[in-house]
């Protein structure tokens, strides 16, 4: 049977792509963020997950506003990293975990989540950077299932709905008949805002409360509307929705393997957590 072995959540600041490309991990500006990852590398080496289910938001690579899904899932055999216009070097493509992806897709739709299904899929920095942070040699030892949440066009799916979709993904994984160790990734956040007169907005107090809730009160943030989240975490801080999907897959208690938080990386309060089901 498939089993969730962990939840890894991390910021996905585009500038990290350049920093990785230029090997700036030990540079004083970047070091506080990259230092979060050796404990995660040790855990990955020990636990050896087979499949990553990655909850993230596309920024105009696989989807444009001509067709903007609220939730999408990639069932493609190959997930392709390519030019996304932000000047981030592309990475080797990622093998898709097709059997599990189709199983989750079927299960979610039967569970009232109307997924858009992608049999071809391009993946942008929100998917690729967490992978490169976990496996810096970019030789992917896992297959992947991308789950995409709209954070581009408001209204966004509510935090409550995102958490419930995570729960449904968790049920789908638990009912997958093949043996597989699944790592769930939540990509994005925490507080940041790129646009408007309030650009540069960061809310450390909210972020720390949110990180605590990821461990101790996972549905805490589901009380907030999309605009509440903009007010509290900045326009792009809403990416914490991906963390809520990921946390929803293990609705019960978790223990913290690793947690780190640093302000700023680019315009962002950068955070990383690795949680294990208890």
């Amino acid at each position: 049977m498939a089993k969730i072995v962990g939840i890894m959540t991390t910021s996905h600041v585009p500038a990290l792509g350049r920093a990785i490309h230029l090997n700036l991990q030990q540079d004083p500006y970047w070091k506080p963020f990259f230092d979060g990852f050796p404990p995660i590398h040790e855990w990955l080496e020990r636990v050896k997950p087979d499949i990553v289910v990655s909850c993230y938001n596309d920024h105009g690579l696989n989807f444009f506003l001509d067709k903007q899904p609220t939730f999408a899932i990639g069932t493609a055999p190959e997930l392709i990293s390519t030019d996304e216009g932000w000047g981030i070097p592309s990475m080797p493509s990622f093998p898709g975990a097709e059997d599990l992806a189709w199983h989750i897709r079927d299960s979610l739709i039967r569970d009232d989540f109307d997924m858009l299904t992608c049999q071809e899929m391009l993946v942008d920095h929100a998917f690729t950077l967490p992978m490169a942070l976990m496996w810096p040699d970019q030789k992917w030892p896992v297959k992947s299932v991308p789950v995409c949440v709209n954070t581009v066009l408001f209204p966004l799916p509510s935090a409550r709905r995102c958490f419930k979709m995570g729960e449904a993904i968790g049920r789908a994984i638990a009912s997958f008949p093949e043996d597989a160790k699944v790592l769930v990734v939540g990509s994005g956040g925490l507080s940041h805002q790129l646009e408007g007169e309030r650009a540069g907005f960061i809310n450390k107090e909210f972020d720390l409360k949110f990180m605590d809730s990821m461990v101790n009160d996972p549905q805490w943030a589901t009380q907030f509307s999309d605009l509440d989240l903009v007010e509290k975490t900045g326009n792009e801080g809403v990416e914490l929705l991906n963390w809520l999907v990921a946390r929803g897959t293990v609705p019960g208690p978790v223990k913290v393997v690793h947690s780190s938080f640093h302000i700023p990386i680019s315009n962002t309060a950068a955070a990383t957590m690795l949680l294990e089901p208890v």
């Binding site: 581009v152 066009l153 408001f154 209204p155 646009e195 309030r198 650009a199 907005f201 903009v230 326009n235």
Partner: peptide, 14 residues
């Protein structure tokens, strides 16, 4: 609802 300094990319903007 508006949030000062935080423009929302909504249906009208799209």
């Amino acid at each position: 609802r508006t949030i000062p300094g935080a423009p929302i990319f909504d249906s009208d903007a799209a």
